[in-house]
């Protein structure tokens, strides 16, 4: 038991090592773009207010009435902040595919090495999975650190009378992106990550289907995705099917949803295991 755990950690650390440069690049882009946003937006705002005050020879108060006070939310809405997040999300999504396909790419068929390791092959599956999740959380954590820094930077760059009275968390929770991505509401955060987890399991399964059956595998994969969608959405459609929206309590629908997502995850793992052990081709 201890030996397989060590092998799993080895493999996970190894996978992370292969991913780290990519992750550093994403972190770099995020931090640089964020910093630009944190400085540029407040400066542009103060410039505008000052210019307006000079041009129209009015007081601060009047200028603020025209432009409104600056809030952290205004900064959050710019693509300096949202851009890197969108980039990170799509990059990791692509990486979820790349993390498998790279083993077969090029002259180096590293799939040979991985599949011939004297450890359960599902370790490969789980290690790739864990590494993607570690990357997601690392990016989120970096984003949080950056946001805290940015909030303080903005407060330092702009006179406090020019700032709208809005707390750090109010600004974040007002923004749908951050509301869902950051752990502001623990249940929402867990739900989003739970859905992400199931999504990743299904994605991996589809990749393994393709790797095992090639073109036929893609068709099976699409069918599998449709079936999982059907299962996942089944609880949502259940009230319509029963013809009574109050027959099941919301809590029961949630439990059903959790169960169906769990079922999808479990099936995906079982299918992946079967494919990795019996059907995969190098």
């Amino acid at each position: 038991m201890k030996k397989t755990l060590k092998a799993f950690l080895n493999l996970t650390a190894f996978e992370l090592d292969r991913l780290s440069k990519f992750l550093y690049a994403l972190i770099g882009v995020t931090l640089v773009a964020n910093m630009i946003g944190y400085v540029l937006i407040p400066l542009r705002f103060t410039d505008r207010i000052n210019a307006y005050m000079v041009q129209n020879s009015v007081t601060e108060q009047q200028a603020l009435e025209v432009y409104g006070e600056l809030s952290f939310y205004d900064i959050l809405q710019t693509s300096w902040i949202l851009g890197p997040i969108a980039l990170g999300v799509s990059a990791l999504l692509l990486y979820a595919f790349f993390i498998w396909y790279r083993e077969w790419l090029g002259k180096n068929t590293f799939a040979y090495r991985l599949l011939m390791l004297p450890i359960p092959r599902m370790h490969i599956f789980y290690s790739k999975f864990v590494v993607i999740y570690v990357s997601i959380f690392t990016l989120i954590a970096i984003q949080i650190v950056s946001l805290i820094f940015g909030f303080n930077l903005m407060s330092a760059l702009v006179p406090s009378e020019w700032l709208r009275h809005m707390s750090f968390f109010s600004a974040l929770s007002m923004h749908p992106f951050f509301y869902y991505i950051l752990p502001l509401e623990p249940w929402i955060f867990l739900a989003i990550n739970g859905i992400g987890l199931v999504f990743l399991h299904v994605t991996f399964t589809v990749i393994l289907l393709e790797r095992s059956f090639s073109v036929k595998g893609i068709l099976i994969g699409i069918t599998y995705v449709l079936i999982t969608l059907l299962i996942a959405l089944f609880p949502a459609f259940l009230p319509e099917l029963i013809g009574n929206h109050y027959y099941l309590y919301n809590s029961e629908l949630l439990i059903l949803t959790v169960l169906s997502l769990g079922l999808i995850s479990f099936t995906s793992i079982m299918i992946s295991r079967f494919l990795l052990n019996k059907k995969i081709t190098v």
Binding site: L9, L16, V134, F137, T138, I140, A141, F169, P183, L184
Partner: peptide
């Protein structure tokens, strides 16, 4: 060998929990 893995995991857990706590 594990330091990168553990530090990433530790960093994200600390920051995420930190945010929850801070909030």
């Amino acid at each position: 060998k594990y330091s990168k893995l553990f530090s990433f995991a530790f960093f994200s857990i600390v920051i995420l929990l930190g945010l929850v706590f801070y909030q």
